[in-house]
Design a protein around this nucleic acid. Structure first.
Lengths: 192, 192
DNA sequence: CAGTGATTTCAGAAATTTCTGAAATTACTG
DNA sequence: CAGTAATTTCAGAAATTTCTGAAATCACTG
């Protein structure tokens, strides 16, 4: 591996992290490399920089494309493919969230729903279903929240983030304001 | 594997999912089994239910304990250990979030900070640092938000979730109200 | 349509991870 | 403190994943 030392640390760390997620080491490294490269790279350059085989690069890029994590660029009069990542880190975050949801959350929800449809044949099964139902409810709540906030422009999302838990203060304030105007209505926020 | 069919589907799915995260298949299966079991199980029972070796169970339980995902129980006059998961799915979610942060986010932040301290020795390194700085900023924002909302009681957290993007409506409303009272102050929410 | 360079595919090699059974350890008990 | 049951450890077997080099495919070009 023949990279500026500072880039190399980054690439190696993402390799490690890659294996801790489902992504493998090489895929993580390639992504990291593309992320910090000022210009798009072609497969050959990636293979050289990371000292891995050309075919490994090919397969790993395919994987990254399946995750929508890389962009394909072309230079005039050059028929090689060049690869980059999106510039906007928020966009990257959105893509990651979306893909992980698609691969992990959605299938889980569908398995849970499937099981919850079935008729329990014993007490053990009845209890198991209750537990799964709790899990299903929680995941659905999280998913709905996600589907909702992902629509927000980045600007607003960032504002919301920086507010953090302080939004609850706002909620309380709103409750008070609303109770002034209307007749008793303890917690209007509870409706879905 | 000798389990009620409905439990078996669940266990198998979590096994699959396990491998997609860093967690391995057996660990995922054991967790799923404990999650839907009405009473705590001992290692032997787990090994039998999942048809895996006793030693594998031992190592996997150790792993789950390192993640704080299982509880140890004891029966009077029985010196075996019995295992369960917490009842509250919100609590489980909190633990998961906390552990993943500890293992994935924190180390990444610290690598990024480390690199950003260094002096770039070339244009390539300078550019790489800019990119890493963007990433660092984003992760810090997310982390701060997380540290903030994780303090909330579950009740409030759930309310916040169910509100979703509608909080921004509230923000706008607040802006209007505040502008009525005070002299011009366009976006008070922006301060960190 | 032969020639060339880029890319992909894929069988098997290499590396890594997971799992097991046997042995060791721990923690009691009579 | 010998005996016993539960548990852990760990070397190597088994399974899985990752990676490579050689061959095939693709997309042009003269």
């Amino acid at each position: 591996m023949n990279l500026p030392p500072l880039v190399q640390s980054f690439v190696l760390h993402f390799g490690e992290m890659g294996s801790r997620w489902g992504i493998n080491r090489t895929v993580g490294q390639i992504y990291a490399l593309l992320f910090v490269s000022p210009a798009p790279l072609c497969a050959e350059e990636i293979a050289d920089s990371l000292s891995i085989s050309r075919s490994n690069v090919s397969m790993s890029l395919r994987e990254l494309q399946a995750w929508n994590l890389v962009l394909l660029k072309h230079k005039p009069d050059d028929r090689r493919d060049f690869f980059t990542t999106p510039d906007d880190v928020w966009q990257i975050l959105r893509t990651l969230a979306e893909e992980r949801k698609k691969r992990e959350v959605d299938p889980t929800l569908s398995v849970l729903r499937e099981i919850l449809m079935q008729r329990p044949a014993s007490d053990a099964e009845r209890y198991a279903q209750e537990r799964m139902s709790d899990m299903h409810t929680l995941i659905e709540q999280l998913t709905h929240w996600y589907e909702d906030v992902k629509q927000l422009e980045t600007e607003r999302l960032a504002t919301l983030l920086s507010l953090g838990a302080k939004v609850t203060k706002l909620l309380e304030a709103k409750d008070r304001v609303v109770s002034l105007g209307r007749s008793r209505r303890p917690n209007p926020a509870n409706k879905s």
